[in-house]
Design a protein around this nucleic acid. Structure first.
Length: 248
DNA sequence: CTCCAGGTACCTT
DNA sequence: AAGGTACATGGA
C-alpha cells in the first residue's frame, strides 16, 4: 500500500486532532484499548487486533496510484501530487469528525487540536449525550461552544449512520441541519467521516489556491470546476491542493 | 495595535 | 446567487 503515514496523519485531517505522536509512532484509544500505528522502511505496523480498524482509517482499499493518475489533470495538480507522494484520505468516526470540524471554524490547526483534545474523555470524543450534559464553559471554545451544545443535543437520538446511506447531495443537506455545520464543515464530515470522495471542502486555503492556480473564485465556480476536473475523486484532489497551499 | 485561522448564521442586494 | 458583518480566541 502506497502510504506516507506521517504526512497522512498530520495533514489537517481528523487524525491530526484525535491521535497522538510519540517516538515516531501514532496512538489513540479506540474501543477502550490503545491502538498504535507506525511505519518503518515503508512497511505499515499496528497493534495486534487493530488490522480492520487501521485498514478503515487509512482507506487501504483505495488504489492511490490509480486515483492519483485519475486526478493528475494538469501541471498544477501534477506538482501537488508529486510533492506529497503517499498522502491518503483518512476515514474517522462521523461524530468525532463533526466535532473536529465544528472546532475548526475560523480556527488554526494547533488550537483545533487543543480544543478537540479537551473534548475527549478516556481517549475518545465525548458522545453526544455526555457532551450535551457537560460544562464546556471553561474550555475556551469561543462561539463554537453553542454549536457543539446544539449539535450534540440534536445528535442524541439521531442515527448518524443513516447519513452514510444517502447520496452525496442529500447527505450534505442532512448535515447542514445541525447548527454550526455549514457547507464547508459538511463537506469535511462527508469526506473524512463518511468517505464521500467526491466531497470538495472549500476553506480559505483552497479558495486561494483555486483562484491562484485555476482562476476561479466563488463557491459555485470552484465546486463546478472541481467536479468537472476530478469528479468522484475530488476529495483527494482537494487534499493535495490543501497540503500544497499550506507548504507554499 | 492589526491580521489571520480547514466558517457559520443572518442579513441585504 | 452573491456580498456584507458579528462572532470568541490566541498566535504572529
Amino acid at each position: 500500500m502506497l502510504l506516507d503515514l506521517g504526512l497522512t496523519m498530520e495533514s489537517g485531517q481528523p487524525p491530526h486532532f484525535l491521535w497522538n505522536r510519540e517516538k515516531g509512532r501514532y496512538w489513540r484509544i479506540a474501543g477502550g484499548k490503545r491502538c498504535e500505528v507506525w511505519q518503518e522502511k515503508g512497511r505499515l505496523g499496528f497493534s495486534e487486533g487493530f488490522g480492520g480498524y487501521v485498514g478503515t482509517l487509512l482507506r487501504k482499499n483505495d488504489d492511490l496510484e490509480k486515483i492519483c493518475e485519475r486526478i493528475d489533470t494538469d501541471a498544477e495538480m501534477h506538482g501537488a501530487i508529486a510533492a506529497h507522494r503517499g498522502l491518503r484520505i483518512t476515514k474517522s468516526d462521523p461524530w468525532e469528525t463533526i466535532v473536529c470540524f465544528i472546532c475548526s471554524i475560523n480556527n488554526n490547526i494547533p488550537r483545533i487540536r487543543r480544543m478537540v483534545q479537551s473534548l475527549m474523555v478516556e481517549g475518545e470524543v465525548m458522545p453526544p449525550e455526555v457532551m450535551f450534559a457537560a460544562d464546556l464553559s471553561q474550555k475556551r471554545l469561543g462561539y463554537r461552544e453553542k454549536y457543539l451544545k446544539a449539535t450534540s443535543e440534536m445528535a442524541m437520538g439521531y442515527d448518524l449512520r443513516k447519513i452514510g446511506k444517502m447520496d452525496y447531495e442529500r447527505a450534505k443537506g442532512a448535515l447542514v441541519e445541525f447548527e454550526g455545520v455549514g457547507p464547508k464543515v459538511a463537506d469535511c464530515v462527508l469526506l473524512f467521516g463518511y468517505g464521500f470522495l467526491e466531497a470538495f471542502p472549500v476553506d480559505v486555503w483552497i479558495a486561494r489556491e483555486m483562484e491562484r492556480g485555476y482562476g476561479v473564485k466563488g463557491e459555485r465556480a470552484i465546486h463546478g470546476l472541481a467536479k468537472e476536473k476530478w469528479g468522484k475523486f475530488a476529495g483527494y484532489a482537494q487534499q493535495y491542493l490543501y497540503c500544497s497551499a499550506r507548504s507554499r
